[in-house]
Amino acid sequence: MIRYVVKRLLMMIPILLCISFFVMVLIDITPGDPARLLLGNTATEEKIESLREEWGLNDPLPVRYGRFVWNILHGDFGTSYQTKRPVATEMFQRFPYTLLIAVLSLVLSVFIGIPLGVLAATHQYTIWDNVAIFLSLIAVSMPGFWFALLLIRYFGVVLAILPTSGIEDWKGWILPTVSLALGYAAIIARQTRSNLLEVIRQDYITTARAKGLAEGRVLYLHAMKNAIIPVVMIVGSIFGASLGGALIAEIVFSVPGLGQYTLSGLSNRDYPVIQGSVLILSGLYSVIILVIDLLFALIDPRIRSQYSSKREKIRKKGGVAANEAEEGVAAD
């Protein structure tokens, strides 16, 4: 198991190298000049050219990429062209906002989505099921920014009990969190419903019932534990995606998070910002996916047995002679 985790962590290195290389190529072929954007239309060609030279933009692509990787290895994520501040520092300041919104909205959506999905699945074809499906369909199809604007209108303007934008105290967190959680909850509810419906038709659920177990035990111990795996997958992907900046919520509610930062970097062609944030976010995403995979292994012994190393399997089997050849392979 530990071997597997180490292997996965090592695999992140080539993945991140590839991603940063593609980002650099994409930046290179995208029109727009950061020096011209910073200095404005009135700047002379010489000035622009000297700034480009200073930033090292005139070097060939492999040289630039090598320099980028070298700097990263020394803990330097570059300095923003626009703000002249280190990218790592800025991201470090903004990250808590994004993380907190992502965590809060995800927790809220799990607490709404999973019970709603269970309710729908256990009352299939009844009014409960229909109401739950209808609600989640509305929530999924409603554009996020529109729902955010509705929230601002009612809670910020009409009732005037919550701030319309900005984060000054705990009240400021409520609307961004709720606006994100609605869509997530709907996705989670639908996924929970369809998985649970599939699982409760399985033979082993009938077996559990035939043992004389109470319906609650059948549902939560036997069915839910099997049905939760794809839901964990969805929750993890949502979490990863929302770390990349729940952009609309951050913009609508002016939350100083990562999404805003990345977006401003993109529109200003602020190359260090783009590359630094993409690298950090993809690293985070890989870690989250790894955590999800480990969660799967925790829930499902079949997956767990795939992860355990060959050597452990052999030890469990206890065979000696027949496995000696394999032992040699595993030791390599």
């Binding site: 033979d203 082993y204 077996t207 559990a208 035939a210 004389g212 036997h222 099997n226 499902d300 079949r302």
Partner: peptide
């Protein structure tokens, strides 16, 4: 109280009759 205690059932397909996890 009857299921599994006084009346028990063996299901057709052993591959799917046991909870995999």
């Amino acid at each position: 109280k009857i299921r599994g205690n006084k009346i028990a059932m063996i299901f057709q397909d052993p591959m799917t009759a046991l909870n995999p996890i």
